[in-house]
Structures are given as structure tokens and as C-alpha cells.
């Protein structure tokens, strides 16, 4: 079974006036990523960048391969082919990445932070060293543990090292006490920002749905990520909760300086907060650019409305004509998926 391989490539001119952050200072670079499951090609030769400090949205119809991309980035899957580079600082130029790739090592520390080849790293190291955190489409909290404990688990490595692999913790040494207090302080900080502070000691499974979603984000933030990957954070939220989520993501981006990569079906969320949108369909990238540009891309509209390939060609021709007339391009909102 081979997905439609004859998709017309998206027109990819970049506006000459603007240099985008994802081009000059990417935190994550996905290059020629391919993921096959037997005969099924879930992701096919996908390349895109995530800019440092940007909120980047990965969108596409159901089954487009968005979650597979997430799974490759966070080490859940090992990609069949391709390279996934995480850069902690700006100096990780192409030369440094090439050297690292040839050296066979999974990561290298540099003056500005480090370069990490995520496809070479096991998942716990991606979290611990490369500082990528993620949440899931279906909530995966430790439901039997308290809200606070969920946030402490996310700081396991710091606490484990401070407690001298539990020994110091048993004897409650001063170094460990300080580390534990710092961990609790950080947990409290995030509980306050997600308005969960009053529920700190109840089991996470007992929280209402919206609160569980916020707790997942708080837990991911407790790992101090450079890149936060959110898989449909707005799914199942009511409009008020959705707008609170937007605020939280803005806060994470501006105050914490954490780059955000999110999969989202709620176009309201995507268009409102994203700096950069990457559109997938059948495992291939069909559009990449600012929210405004992607919204008006005919191939995106076609993918979302599910039209035939000929119609895409027609739509593109129309769009080209429209552009030629310098008229307003079809400003149809790409509708929400049910």
C-alpha cells in the first residue's frame, strides 16, 4: 500500500523581506525523516525546522503522520531514515553537526550548549540530555500518584543525583534536602501557573479532564525542556480552557524561552498562537510557513477538504491566477476536523 506519491509539491518561495527564526536559528531540525511500518510509509522524507523561541504547529488531516513525527523526535520510535538534530545554542552550525554525525557519537557539548542527534539516543536520554519533553494525545499521567509526585518524577534525575542514588536521601543529608526543596519549589511554581496548587496532594487521576491536561504540561515543564512537544493539547477543552491554554503556551514561550512544537486540530488555537505552521498529508510536507501563508495555501485547503488531485491542480491554477491579478487569495478558513 503506497500513499498517493504524486502529491504536488508545495510552492516554497520564502518571502525575501523576512528571515524567519526557524531558518536562521532552529532549535530542532528534522532532515529527510522517513518512518516505515512494514509496507506502510507513515512519514516520507520529511524535513522541517522548529525555530528557537517559536511556537510551531504541526497540522494535517487525521492519519497524516503527525504523531509519528512526534514519536520519532521523542525517541518513542527509531526512524527508518533521516536525521533529527536538536541544538541548545546558536553556534551549532552545519559543520559541527556534520562532524558529530561522522563521529558516530549521539551528542556533543558545545560552548553554546550542545548538539544532539535524537535518532541515536534512547528516550530517557532525549529527556535528560537533549531536553525534549512531550505530552500525549491521550493523557498519560501517573494517575495513582499525587499531583506533586507527578511533578517530582519529572525531576527524577536531579533528585537522584542529589540523593546519591537514594543513599543520601535515606539519611536526609543537607545536600539532598536543598535539592528536594528546590524541586518542590519548582513544582509549586508550575502548579501556581497551571492553577493546580490547591490540588497538589490529591491523586492525579482524580483531577477533572482540563486540569489533567494542564498538569501534563506542568510535568513536562518540570524537566526544564528546551523544546516542548504537545500532542493535541486543546483536545476536549472547552473554549474558556482553550484560551487559558493559549495564555499558558504564550507564557512558556515568552517567560521561559522554551520552544513549543504542537500538533493541533483546533485551527483557532493554531492560527492564534503559532509563529510557524508545518502541514503534513500522507506523511509528506505539503506546506510550511507562517500561519497566514499556510492558511491561504490551496494545497492545504485541498488536503483538508479532501478533494481529488486534479482539483488541487485546478485550485492551484486558480490561486496562481488570483495572485497574478493581485487579488485577494481564497481566504477560506480551513475548517476544523471533526
Amino acid at each position: 500500500m503506497s500513499p498517493a506519491s504524486a502529491k504536488p509539491a508545495a510552492p516554497s518561495p520564502t518571502p525575501a523581506d523576512a528571515t524567519h527564526r526557524w531558518e536562521v536559528d532552529p532549535v530542532l531540525t528534522v532532515e529527510h525523516l522517513t518512518m516505515r511500518f512494514g509496507g506502510l510509509v507513515a512519514v516520507d522524507d520529511l524535513s522541517f525546522n522548529v525555530g528557537r523561541g517559536d511556537i510551531t504547529a504541526l497540522i494535517g488531516p487525521n492519519g497524516a503522520g503527525k504523531t509519528t513525527v512526534f514519536n520519532c523526535v521523542t525517541g518513542f520510535y527509531k526512524p527508518t531514515e533521516g536525521r533529527i538534530v536538536m541544538r541548545h545554542g546558536r553556534d551549532g552550525g552545519d559543520e559541527a553537526v556534520r562532524k558529530l554525525t561522522e563521529s558516530g557519537e549521539p551528542w556533543a557539548r558545545t560552548d553554546a550548549g550542545g548538539i544532539f542527534l535524537l535518532e541515536r539516543m534512547p528516550d530517557f536520554r532525549i529527556s535528560k540530555e537533549a531536553k525534549v519533553a512531550r505530552t500525549f494525545q491521550n493523557i498519560r499521567l501517573f494517575s495513582g500518584m499525587t499531583v506533586l509526585e507527578n511533578l517530582l518524577i519529572a525531576q527524577h534525575n536531579v533528585l537522584m543525583a542529589a540523593s546519591g542514588f537514594t543513599i543520601g536521601g535515606i539519611f536526609n543529608l543537607p545536600g539532598f534536602r536543598a535539592a528536594r526543596q528546590a524541586a518542590i519549589d519548582k513544582a509549586v511554581y508550575w502548579l501556581e501557573h497551571t492553577r493546580l496548587i490547591d490540588q497538589a496532594d490529591i491523586p492525579a487521576g482524580g483531577l477533572p479532564y482540563g486540569a489533567q491536561r494542564r498538569l501534563e504540561i506542568a510535568r513536562a515543564m518540570c524537566t526544564e525542556p528546551h523544546l516542548l512537544c504537545l500532542d493535541e493539547p486543546a483536545a476536549g477543552l472547552n473554549p474558556r480552557e482553550t484560551s487559558e491554554l493559549n495564555e499558558l503556551l504564550e507564557f512558556i514561550r515568552t517567560e521561559e524561552g522554551t520552544s513549543v512544537l504542537l500538533i493541533e486540530h483546533d485551527m483557532g488555537v493554531v492560527m492564534e498562537i503559532s509563529d510557524h505552521v508545518v502541514v503534513l498529508d500522507y506523511g509528506e510536507k505539503i506546506s510550511d510557513g507562517s500561519a497566514e501563508r499556510v492558511r491561504n495555501d490551496p494545497s492545504v485547503i485541498a488536503a483538508y477538504l479532501g478533494v481529488e488531485d486534479e482539483e488541487v491542480a485546478e485550485a492551484e491554477a486558480e490561486a496562481a491566477a488570483a495572485a497574478a491579478r493581485a487579488a485577494k487569495a481564497p481566504a477560506e478558513e480551513s475548517g476544523d476536523r471533526p
Binding site: 530517557f124 501517573f142 519529572a154
Partner: peptide, 11 residues
């Protein structure tokens, strides 16, 4: 409870 999730959190 969830080994995979624990792993993704750095455990």
C-alpha cells in the same frame, strides 16, 4: 504505572 512515560521524563 507507565514505564514508557517515566522513560520520557528522564527516568
Amino acid at each position: 504505572q507507565d514505564a514508557k512515560m517515566a522513560s520520557l521524563l528522564g527516568v
